[in-house]
């Protein structure tokens, strides 16, 4: 039973309900995209699993074991958080060395080779790194731990295009060589969209979607064309949302495409995750 299960978890901060009765599970060797707008509750969920904060109610298990404050369960997880929890004077190389003592599977060769690929200087103090390099440092640490469950909270924050590219390549490479569960929490979906295979969408602390990326994308389609024809076709169907650009209208629809009813002059295409996400989480 290798999975993380979350049952009826609720968490509030004062009067703000951050997570509202969320139940889901993360199963072995998938790359999850944990998607949601800022403040939707993504980080809260990860913080509860790693025991950094405590849920008001509900049950969180890692491989069948109750997770919070359980050393055995926690050693299976490494979470790269957006915030820096490293001591002021600690250097990159020191952090790698200490992490390898807490995560015995830590791959020192990998951390060294990734550091040189990204141009991360191990002699630098962590606190002196730029936002981008701080993210790179944390990413390298996370991947090198070889923990069975690796959480990446906003992994590409501050990374330039080249480094984002390199990051996703390295991630796929590592995942292919050593399959494990990655949970990538982000609101920057476009680049992650093809990498993840499972999608979890959280909106205002509630679970909105939890399914494979392919299944999710198969549920809908996009049509675009003259506004009148699009409206005529879309009437009575399940519309997620739409964009208008002058007389051109694009509608995002759920369900099967009914090609016979489709007026001419209308183009159909697949939903892409980015658009689907925006439509699902709007307002």
């Amino acid at each position: 039973m290798n999975e993380i299960t979350i049952q009826n978890v609720t968490k509030s901060y004062g009067s703000v309900l951050a997570l509202d009765d969320v139940s889901l599970s993360f199963s072995e060797n998938h790359i999850y995209g944990l998607l949601g707008r800022n403040g939707a509750g993504k980080s809260t969920l990860l913080n509860l699993i790693t025991g950094r904060q405590f849920a008001d109610s509900g049950n969180i298990r890692v491989d069948g074991q109750y997770a919070p404050e359980n050393p055995e369960a926690q050693r299976k997880i490494f979470m790269m958080s957006e915030k820096n929890l490293y001591p002021t004077s600690m250097k990159v190389a020191e952090a790698f060395r200490w992490t390898s003592r807490f995560y015995p599977e830590f791959d020192r060769d990998l951390s060294a080779s990734l550091s040189s690929r990204f141009g991360l200087d191990p002699k630098k103090k962590i606190k002196s790194l730029s936002t981008g390099y701080a993210s790179i440092f944390k990413l390298i640490t996370a991947v090198a731990t070889r923990a069975p469950y690796i959480f990446l909270d906003e992994p590409v924050l501050g990374l330039d295009a080249n480094h984002r590219d390199l990051f996703y390549r390295s991630l796929i490479e590592q995942y292919s060589e050593n399959p494990r569960t990655y949970i990538i929490s982000t609101h920057l979906i476009e680049e992650a969209a093809n990498v993840i295979d499972q999608v979890i969408i959280i909106k205002n602390g509630r679970l909105l979607k939890d399914e494979s990326r392919d299944d999710l994308l198969r549920q809908g389609y996009t049509i675009s064309g003259p506004a009148a024809s699009v409206d005529a076709y879309a009437a009575g169907r399940n519309i997620l949302g739409s964009d208008t650009l002058g007389g051109l209208k694009t509608a995002y629809l759920l369900g099967e495409c009914d090609a016979s009813a489709l007026p001419s002059g209308i183009e159909i295409s697949h939903l892409d995750l980015q658009h689907l996400f925006i439509q699902l989480t709007n307002a």
């Binding site: 790693t50 950094r52 929890l85 490293y86």
Partner: peptide
């Protein structure tokens, strides 16, 4: 402060 934060980052529980 620093010790607790760093060790939490490394999956160490409060009890440990």
């Amino acid at each position: 402060r620093e010790s607790f934060k760093f060790l939490s980052q490394n999956g160490i529980t409060r009890k440990q």
